[in-house]
Design a binder for these strands. Structure first.
Length: 425
RNA sequence: GGAGAGGUGGCCGAGCGGUUGAAGGCGCACGCUUGGAAAGCGUGUGUAGGUUUACCCCUACCGAGGGUUCGAAUCCCUCCCUCUCCGCCA
């Protein structure tokens, strides 16, 4: 959420920032007009309340002295009518203003590239090299089914399209990947592990920005006001909702493994084959709470922490900076990590690392107390995948496939698979 | 799901319906004291909004939302959460 005061004082900056984004947002001039009206009403009401308070105190004194106070009592009763009226008006405006603010996306970082979609994203760097595979590479579905690692047909029977059953060594590989990633992030990159609930309430989704605008992406419970998490970002960022943190404790870094549930409502026909786009997938998430001045630097570190997984697994990837048009609603700046997939002869997103500035923190009321005193200020929040396990599974199958249809287990992963070197049928 | 108890400031803990934003204690910060430390003493120490160059000032907040009253942390109603016991259950 943007600060209404900031909008008031910097209307031109806000307008230019939002114009760079795709989509429609509430009219800012209307918004400011309503805000002006709200403050006027508020001031008027507060003046009357002050008057009322004084009169009531007078009544108390007079009554204690056994004196008549009906004149004052009548006056307060009179004031109450006006106060109620004003408060109702102010409250109504507050609700409208708040709703509008929730519908306004974050201002994009000034330095990120213009553009309307992913074709305008900016190449930052790449690492490693494409594997030299002999013959036509098989895709992960062919490999996975041949080796008995995944069963998509039965998953469709059990749950429907866009679900998967991992079996045998496939299940072990997925589980191994998750453990491997959490271990690296906790033991080498300094993150504390959290294991949060997979069902969250509405407030949490408002805090991170999935609601109110993107409810159609969520799986909702029928009998309870709860939603399946679309990403661990939601429970982990909301871990500190409504809290004032100590400045010295920042940055706070958490990692969490969770499954993620997404309806993929807007993506009919896209990636219908295989494990690339699923309603349920596993992900190890990285979340940071940082001092405002440090968030830029922390984003760079977070991207490197995510990259470290790909490096250890020796998978070729590139880092892209998202252009404004590809940027998420709450994000100010985002880097995507894209891993090489031989069968598709292309790079696919396997991690998305964002700096949200104080946008989520203001929504979720996450502040920090400054050592120098003064008012608490909103922290900056960041998060990124470190990494998406399902897509990593795909990348390993495809990049490590052998001519005979087997798959070599990356060395770093072998301790997680009882030392196994090759997956074969 | 049933029965009971409870939710007050960073924490503990008072609080007859009328200078209570809230006693007291702990913690924390600063100062005094000391060779140094501890103890001791003193001062300060919530959040949000409005106004303001700033200080000040004003308003709201004692789980949340309503209600009663001239006046509510205190009385009434609804909801939420926590704890204990029972039931159910991995």
């Amino acid at each position: 959420m943007l600060d209404i005061k900031f909008i008031r004082d910097n209307i031109q900056i806000v307008k230019t920032g939002l114009e760079r984004r795709n989509g429609k947002f509430p009219d800012l001039d209307d918004l400011l007009e309503q805000e002006e009206e709200r403050r006027e009403g508020l001031q008027e009401s507060e003046q009357l309340k002050n008057k009322k308070k004084k009169l009531s105190a007078e009544v108390g004194k007079l009554k204690q002295q056994g004196q008549e106070a009906s004149e004052q009592m009548g006056e307060v009763k009179n004031l109450n009518v006006f106060i109620k009226e004003l408060d109702e008006k102010v409250e109504g405006l507050e609700t409208i203003i708040h709703e509008k603010l929730l519908g306004i996306p974050n201002l994009p970082d000034e330095n990120i590239p213009d553009g309307i979609d992913e074709s305008n994203n900016k190449f930052i760097r790449e690492w490693g090299a494409k594997p030299s595979l002999k013959g036509e590479p098989l895709n992960h579905v062919e490999l996975g089914e041949k080796l008995g690692l995944i069963d998509l047909k039965r998953a469709a029977k059990i749950s429907g399209a866009r679900f998967a059953v991992y079996r045998g060594m496939g299940a072990a590989l997925l589980r191994g990947l998750i453990n491997f990633m959490v271990d690296v992030q906790t033991q080498e990159n300094g993150y504390e592990e959290l294991y949060p609930p997979f069902l969250v309430n509405e407030e949490s989704l408002l805090g991170t920005g999935q609601l109110p605008k993107f409810g159609e992406e969520l799986f909702a419970m029928k009998n309870d006001p709860l939603f399946l998490i679309p990403t661990a970002e939601v429970p982990v960022t909301n871990f500190h909702r409504d809290e004032i943190l100590e400045e010295e404790s920042l940055p706070i870094c958490y990692t969490a493994y969770t499954p993620c549930f997404r309806r993929e409502a807007g993506s009919y026909g896209k990636d219908t084959q295989g494990l690339i786009r699923q309603h349920q997938f596993d992900k190890v998430e990285l979340v940071k709470f940082s001092k405002p001045d440090d968030s830029e630097k922390e984003l760079e570190k977070l991207v490197q922490n995510a990259e470290s997984i790909l490096k250890k697994l020796d998978l070729h990837y590139r880092v892209m900076e998202l252009c404004v048009g590809d940027l998420g609603f709450s994000a100010a700046k985002t880097y995507d990590l894209e891993v090489w997939l031989p069968s598709q002869n292309t790079y696919r997103e396997i991690s998305s690392c964002s700096n949200f500035g104080d946008y989520q923190a203001r929504r979720a009321k996450i502040r920090c107390k400054k050592k120098t005193g003064g008012k608490p200020e909103f922290v900056h929040t960041l998060n990124g995948s470190g990494l998406a396990a399902g897509r990593l599974f795909v990348a390993i199958l495809e990049n490590y496939q052998n001519e005979d249809g087997t798959v070599t287990v990356p060395e770093a992963l072998r301790p997680y698979l009882q030392g196994r070197k090759v997956l074969s049928s």
